[in-house]
Design a protein around this nucleic acid. Sequence first.
DNA 1: GCCGAAGGTGAGCGGTTGCTTAGAGCACCT
DNA 2: AGGTGCTCTAAGCAACCGCTCACCTTCGGC
Lengths: 208, 208
Amino acid sequence: MSTAEETAGGETQPWGEVTPDAARRLLIAAVEAFAERGYHATTTRDIAGRAGMSPAALYIHYKTKEELLHRISRIGHEKALDILRTAARREGTPAERLADAVSSFVRWHAGGRTTARVVQYELDSLGPDARAEIVGLRRQVNAEVRRIIEDGVAAGEFDVPDVQGTTLAVLSLCIDVARWFNVNGPRTPDEVGALYADLVLRMVGAGR
Amino acid sequence: MSTAEETAGGETQPWGEVTPDAARRLLIAAVEAFAERGYHATTTRDIAGRAGMSPAALYIHYKTKEELLHRISRIGHEKALDILRTAARREGTPAERLADAVSSFVRWHAGGRTTARVVQYELDSLGPDARAEIVGLRRQVNAEVRRIIEDGVAAGEFDVPDVQGTTLAVLSLCIDVARWFNVNGPRTPDEVGALYADLVLRMVGAGR
DNA sequence: GCCGAAGGTGAGCGGTTGCTTAGAGCACCT
DNA sequence: AGGTGCTCTAAGCAACCGCTCACCTTCGGC
């Protein structure tokens, strides 16, 4: 009851862990603004305004504008990694686990497009230290997908000449959903997830 | 001889059509700056400085900073469309044409990553009118790929349940190369192009 | 030798940026 | 009643932004 992770609306709200209420409102406002206009085109006044506060209130909860992006990026990557881990470590054949990983990963990028956009496309706006931390999380994301593909190859279920290259392509395909997906478009996140899971299984030669 | 399209270095230079020499230098400087820092984080002083000129010189050749981005985006999209058209309209089986289209499209995104990054990821930084024009070019890009896939389906060579969805996925896969490709990484643009052509043929079920 | 057009510069204008400061309001403890 | 944090605001500072303007140089045509 305390930290609900979903709203009735539909978009996931994984910001339950951001504890002072005002800090969470500011962070959600920042996600929306960054997703719409990009990090550099967003002003601290805009963020504070969306949260219904004065510009100075931002600096009570965050040291700089960049710290906001850093927090958003870390929490988002941890959520993405969690989704992949859950799918990768469930029981089932490699094909089932890969399909599960891709469809849920894509659902997250499509359904939470606002968040995913910031998380995936504003990495370069972070300073060196923060970026290094996020790059570490990305390596874990890569490793998780790679492991499923390696398992499939080892089991003789997949036919993949270049495991790392294919891992990169699969992740790239999923991540780019955040760029083109349109909430008012013809497809639901579920449909895109199902389509992409099928395409990825073909890429690894799982349909024999 | 007059408008060489390639340098000995390797990266394509399709800016031969930008006619006053100073205007071309400014435009190339802008491409580099936009690719590194993003449009909004780039200052006109930075662009002019890279071109070895004073900040005011920019406004002799371009009305605004946005006009620079618009020009870059239009020329880049026309080049990308040209690459796809050439591959789509050559003779050969649909599988050969699709592989050709994907590998050359990917080569362009990987080899000219600097340009491709600006072209593909700064669309939202354009104003409404300029964006509308570029969106029109993107629709033509989509149509070109879609036509190859439809031809393959009609010929019985491809097995594709969702033609438009697969078209979107193929384009998305190619475009996202501009985001992750690293010039100092382990793969050459040619290698990525060949890998991706193979993956896409699997996606459309062309390997029987 | 003079001229006008074209390309370039140094200085700077109005506006906006990220961020700071001084202080107000308010719940809570003793 | 008086102190003590905590949250938030109004005002504003120094720096920087896109862009302009008055002026200088170069150069082909006559």
